[in-house]
Nucleic acid binder design. Structure first.
Lengths: 214, 214
DNA sequence: CCGCAACTGAACCGGGCAGTTTAGTATCGC
DNA sequence: GCGATACTAAACTGCCCGGTTCAGTTGCGG
């Protein structure tokens, strides 16, 4: 599956040349290799080969490796934001809603994509400080805001009682990833059954409700 | 401050030569540079210079960069284990105890050392899979076991009610780092006042108690 | 069929860095 | 004083890899 990502804001004189048949190929190849190997670890020859393009062509589109990387990263941040921005359907009973949301959080956080992006953000924080920051903002932060909004509705309807919305949302997300995420990022456990996730989710909802329920 | 770390198990024919005046210097210099720059990012010349030692001397002690790194990493895992292994004083009222423990967890997790080690584990997970694993085991895992033990005591004394001890401990630790740790690892926020930490801790204890209290 | 622009593939350059070598110095036991 | 051992400084090797160059190919508009 390959898809491109048009600039959210067109890059101002970034030196990127978007016109040409193979632009998308290059970006796609770069995405794969960068996600797999990180920035430092990625080899431009590999990217070109994976993209099915000559190195010269690659450098016809992008002035250097760093800009190619930031372009990929920007797209992935957009994807991330999109993922974080699913509307929360509050029409169902609150407990069911929270269970579904927690399941989504937990499942996403142990996905290959999420883990790869996280690792890259960690590894490349010195070289690309903006990357980690903007990923945080389009991901965790965006997700938190969504949660907060949902919580406000629920409180308004008398289904939850919350004073500190920010921290409550943060706690909810942290509870939803309890146990499994740390194991995933440290590589202690590499795959998770839906039962494992369901157990963590259930306990998360239980604890959250004990504090903020009704 | 410089201190050495004798092998927990003497390395079997690892090619490391421990005798010589400057062994400790080398290890100490390596620790600094590796913690600051990671494995790939660290420059052996820098290490030698920081250690106040010639490169030739360095290579008289360690056969290569990787072994030097793993030696440093092993020591840091030991330090980590030691830090995680503080006895929990259960004589005080449970709420006070948990508040103190949560404060320790939160404070440690946003410390330079902890963040540096975490980043290295993430960055070098492919090159040194064992590192992340053993750091996880001497850190989070060890800490969790300690917590679990404390919880069992508390349950026995009727101060808490818990069924799933593992998940409860995990939830407690996750609640204790809520909000602040993610911001720290993504570099969104680089320093934390004790008030910020205290707030998170208080909310963590509150939520934990709502579920598992009395 | 021509011309032009995109693309290819392979050779090449240059810098960074792990690890080695070498020629020389300091220190210690005897 | 003498040999041995530890250490130093600096030059050097070899490799990897980002980026460039260039001679040749493909394909498309007119």
């Amino acid at each position: 599956m390959t898809f491109t990502c048009r600039p959210s804001r067109p890059d101002p004189a970034s030196g990127i040349n978007r016109k040409g048949r193979k632009f998308d190929q290059v970006l796609d190849g770069a995405r794969r290799i960068f996600l797999a190997d990180g920035f430092e670890g990625a080899n431009v020859d590999d990217i070109a080969r994976t993209a099915g393009v000559s190195k010269a062509t690659l450098y016809a589109y992008f002035p250097d490796k760093a800009q190619l990387f930031t372009e990929v990263a920007r797209c992935e941040c957009d994807r991330m934001a999109e993922a974080a921005l699913q509307e929360i359907d509050m029409s169902r009973p609150i407990r069911e809603v929270l269970t579904r949301v927690a399941t989504q959080i937990a499942t996403f956080l142990v996905s290959d994509f999420s883990l790869a992006m996280f690792r890259i953000c960690m590894s490349e924080r010195d070289r690309f400080p903006e990357l980690a920051r903007s990923y945080y903002e389009s991901g965790p932060e965006m997700g938190r805001r969504q949660l907060e909004a949902g919580f406000r509705d629920a409180v308004a309807r008398g289904e939850l009682k919350i004073e500190n919305f920010t921290l409550a949302a943060e706690q909810f997300a942290d509870l939803a990833r309890s146990h499994i995420w740390l194991r995933a990022v440290f590589g202690v456990q590499t795959s998770f059954t839906s039962e494992e996730i369901a157990e963590v989710v259930e306990e998360a909802v239980e604890t959250f409700f004990a504090r903020y329920g009704r």
